[in-house]
Computed example of a mutant assay.
Amino acid sequence: MTHLNQGDLAPDFTLPRDDGSVFTLSAHRGKRVVLFFYPEDDSGGCTDENVEFSNLLDEYEAAGAVLQGISPDDIAKHQKFRAKYDLRIPLVADPERQAIEAYGLWQLKKLYGREFMGLIRTSFIIGTDGKIERIIRAARIKGHAAKVLEALREKTASA
């Protein structure tokens, strides 16, 4: 399993987005990028998280960042999810877990005494040089998008 730390070069990837475009991390060098990885479209927590990030999109852009959501769901599921909740952020589809595993987020989870492999909800702030500036695990879903935005603003202010 990959274990990434602050200061490491962020693993590059190219994956399709639900709007028909592709997202390549390295194409955004020179800008900060915020990647938020979430487990599943249209589940309660993931819906709340995506709505919060979508509502804060203008503030992320004002802070000079590219905001990108990623889950293991496919393009069709992403399209239905975005339309249902009027989400403003195109979503990256990673059903083969290329980026998810490169970032070390496919791990053993426990829920109600049951163990299974799943995605660990995590956000990464990638610096203009392509290195990881912050790794923020979502301890609480509600408010996670605002917490990541605050961390981004701290990084922007100290640059």
Rank of each mutant, 00 (worst) to 15 (best):
T2E: 15
T2N: 14
L4D: 07
L4E: 08
N5V: 07
G7A: 10
L9H: 06
F13Y: 04
L15I: 04
L15E: 02
D18C: 04
D19E: 05
S21R: 12
F23A: 11
T24P: 00
T24H: 02
L25Y: 04
L25A: 06
S26G: 07
A27E: 12
R29G: 01
R29E: 06
G30V: 08
R32M: 10
V34S: 09
F36P: 02
F37A: 05
Y38N: 14
E40Q: 14
S43K: 12
G45S: 13
C46H: 08
T47W: 10
T47F: 05
T47Q: 07
T47N: 07
D48W: 01
E49D: 03
E49Q: 15
V51R: 06
E52F: 05
F53S: 03
N55H: 12
L57N: 03
L57M: 11
A62T: 09
A63G: 02
A63W: 05
A65K: 12
V66D: 04
V66Q: 08
Q68L: 03
Q68G: 00
P72E: 04
D74H: 11
I75M: 01
A76E: 15
Q79L: 03
Q79A: 14
Q79N: 02
A83D: 11
K84N: 07
Y85V: 01
D86I: 06
L87Y: 04
L87R: 02
R88G: 04
P90G: 07
A93L: 02
D94W: 00
E96N: 13
E101P: 01
E101R: 15
A102H: 00
G104A: 13
L105P: 08
W106S: 07
L108N: 12
K109Y: 09
R114P: 06
G118M: 14
G118L: 13
G118H: 13
L119F: 05
I120Q: 13
R121P: 04
S123Q: 10
S123A: 15
I125H: 03
I126A: 10
G130Q: 08
I135N: 02
I136S: 09
R137V: 06
R137I: 06
A138H: 15
R140G: 09
I141M: 15
G143L: 05
K147G: 04
V148I: 12
A151R: 09
K155W: 14
K155S: 15
S158E: 15
A159H: 10
A159S: 14
A159K: 06
A159C: 06
A159N: 12
